[in-house]
Design a protein around this nucleic acid. Structure first.
Length: 318
DNA sequence: GGAGAATTTCCTGATT
DNA sequence: AAATCAGGAAATTCTC
């Protein structure tokens, strides 16, 4: 999953909400759809959609002071609440070796608390929904996901590779659970369901690169070695460079800061076998990204430092 | 070998 | 004053 894409489209809003309690509960997102970011709090875990699961993960991260980027969120990106319920501790650990146990404990605690509360307070109609997993699934599919499909497709991206629940999802017990629950092995996003490439939606202003004959360029073209923005993205995920060389200023917005400009240039130069790389040149290359919307101008809100701050744009996908 | 993409290099001028 | 930002223009590198 590409974090900026995640942040831009979906998780970012969740992060904003969780980092800033005063933030609005709803935020317009592309496609004129809205995400209710705290809905999971008022729903039974078995009714959680994939979006609710991500929101819960971020909620746990915040409560436990875990840097959200340390959580293997993409590994849970195709989990609904029903899937989490059927997961064992080892399943959580498989998905997140570091925080899997904590996540499992948090989830079970919450689940059991809700179960107790449900017995005491639940209204009859909600209780009936909860008792029937299929109903919960249908409810999830038909009503639960109000995020746009591109957002969820972004959630399924990992390190530049598409982690489609129907293709490259690790073949473990969890995916089997997912298959059982969804019935088809892939999640159906209601009217947004796509089995073709349109599932990987990109903003309409993202040009499709074409060869001179008009055919789309092959995906493998110019993918050998990292692009600069991918290098920076990876540096932001790498504890050896983040936060010492680059760091997030506002991950929810995709805003990051270059801490050691010449060090970053040196690392980029090493990557490209170019000992003459300088920050001047690196920043010039970065400025070419504005036209492609891989980077967008940082809002002059006074929230961020004036120098060495950049913001990933909607084209920084993958 | 040519075309196209993605830088890289060099530059001038503005801003912080 | 130095560092950084913003872009134009041309060159270079790499892949198809």
């Amino acid at each position: 999953m590409c974090l900026p894409a995640l942040f831009d489209h979906f998780g970012g809003e969740i992060l904003r909400t969780h980092m800033n309690p005063a933030a609005a509960q709803f935020k317009p997102i592309p496609n004129n759809e809205r995400v209710d970011l705290t809905r999971f709090l008022s729903k039974e875990p078995q009714e959680w959609t994939m979006g609710d699961v991500i929101a819960w993960l971020l909620h746990v991260a915040k409560r436990n002071d875990i840097p959200f980027e340390d959580l293997e969120m993409q590994k849970f990106a195709n989990c609904t609440g029903m899937i989490l319920i059927q997961m064992r501790e080892t399943d959580f650990q498989q998905r997140d070796a570091v925080y899997g146990s904590l996540l499992y404990a948090e989830f079970r605690k919450l689940f059991e608390e809700r179960s107790i509360n449900k017995c005491a307070y639940k209204s009859p109609e909600r209780a009936s929904t909860s008792r029937v997993p299929d109903d919960a699934r249908i409810s999830c599919i038909n009503n639960g996901l109000s995020v746009n499909p591109s957002a969820l497709s972004s959630l399924l991206m990992s390190d530049g590779n598409l982690m489609s629940s129907s293709s490259t999802q690790p073949l473990d017990t969890l995916s089997q659970v997912g298959t059982d629950i969804s019935g088809s092995g892939t999640f159906n996003f209601n009217s947004h369901a796509r089995s073709d490439e349109t599932f990987m939606l990109r903003p309409p202003y993202c040009k499709v690169r074409k060869n001179k004959d008009g055919r789309p360029r092959k995906h493998s073209q110019h993918t050998k070695g990292n692009k600069l923005w991918e290098f920076i993205r990876d540096a932001l995920k790498d504890p050896t460079t983040c936060p010492s060389v680059v760091r997030w200023e506002d991950p929810a917005e995709g805003v990051f800061r270059i801490v050691e400009s010449e060090k970053l240039a040196q690392l980029w130069g090493e990557r490209k076998n170019n000992q003459k790389m300088t920050y001047e040149k690196l920043s010039r290359a970065m400025r070419t990204y504005y036209e492609k919307r891989i980077l967008v101008p940082v809002p002059k809100t006074g929230l961020y430092p004036k120098k060495l701050v950049y913001k990933f744009g909607p084209s920084a996908l993958g």
